[in-house]
Amino acid sequence: MVLAEATVAEVPPRRAVRRRRFDIVGRVVKPALFTLCLLPLASLAWGWMHGSLGANPIEATTRTLGDWALQLLLLTLAVTPARQLTGWTGVMRLRRMLGLFAFSYAVLHVASYVILDQFFAWTAIWADVVKRRYITAGLAAFLLLLPLAVTSTSGWVKRLGAPVWRRLHRLVYPAAALAVLHHFWMVKADVQQPLVLAAALALLLGWRLIAALRRRGETQRMARATPSGKA
């Protein structure tokens, strides 16, 4: 009797059981992606500790970091098309993290060049920047990413206002283009990988261009269709 009462009392109404819906992006996808993004770095660290980066570990390090900076940057640019294609808005919550990882790998890539490769030989580095177009392009891409990383917080979105923030963050397009160019100009003859990345970038930018043209067409059609347009 008592037992039955207690049981009844402990079972709340059905609606209350379903608290808030399980946040799959925040609880699962984001942490998983965070871990995945750290793997290349972990594998580099492991390679240094075990001497498994080949005969020229400095070159391997600089290249790996640069590869990942570029690939993650392109992945960041794929977020919006992914949302538009799948209709899954949750993917947008991964964009800032991907962008910041791309930037972090870019910082490490530059650090690897300045410290490991050149060991602070600033005259040589400056000569590279001025004379080598692939380094000029790479540095330009990095400098364009810098303000985007700084203003990536929600605070900065508020401070700048969404329209200004959005316009500022369009710098990611020239940054990505310069990064692809940097890669393309660096290789000797094996242009396959840079071409694949260039094609990916073209696809991502082309998608946006088509979407923008469509939007413009729609606005014009709507303007023609409304009575106010006639008057």
Partner: peptide, 14 residues
Amino acid sequence: RWSQKRERRIGEFF
């Protein structure tokens, strides 16, 4: 596309 002034001897840091 790059400088030939210096080189990395494989196995050396500087």
